[in-house]
Amino acid sequence: MTVKRRYYQLVSSLPAIPYFRRTRLLPLSRRRLEERLALLHEEDLADLTQAEGLISWRRQPITRTTEEIGGMYDELMATTRNPALKSIVEYRMTMRTVLVAFRLKHQGRGVPSGRWGVGPYTRMIESRWADPEFGLVAVFPWIPEALEYLNQGDAVALESLGMDLIWTRLSKIADEHPFGFEQVFAFAFKWDILQRWLSYDAEKARQRFEDLIMEVTIDHQELFA
């Protein structure tokens, strides 16, 4: 049985998180976030940590094999208690699987064998390999846009599209479960997306920060001239 826990204090202690494409600053540090997440019930914290290890945008070791990822996914789907957490993990992992299939096809490879992806659509992709979109457009309307970016070699736009889709789904989950565990993990995953997005642009951010400091300093000098 799923226990519906409410986290009034924890949710209220989290700052508003701006849409990742419209901000240049993290609303709180990772350390501060982890301090807040320590208020979670131990079962929920364990589920969140396990899910973060699998779908986090920043915690994916290159050495991790597909078999290992598949094993982690199976374990998480078998043990995680929260259906919304399961659904977001499945969505993210299915998205990765579909993109892997498109990349393989883009490289001119044939139908993959063995365990090459996870989720409910791997068999369908294999059986409809000849179809340019694997017959999945009805399920995933973002596929044409993703294919366009893939063909253009625009990795950042493709990543941004994936982040936007996950962000939208997380917002919906959070809105449906006020003060629930769902709102907490939605925040944690959004923070992760934002952190990853900002890391692409760290140099620009540093430059902008220096410009702002310069502007403030000049204003200050003029004020007291």
Binding site: R6, Y8, Q9, S12, S13, P15, R36, F179
Partner: peptide, 13 residues
Amino acid sequence: GRGGLAAAGAMLE
């Protein structure tokens, strides 16, 4: 209790 917990959380922010 619900309001108080939320107030305590907001005070951190």
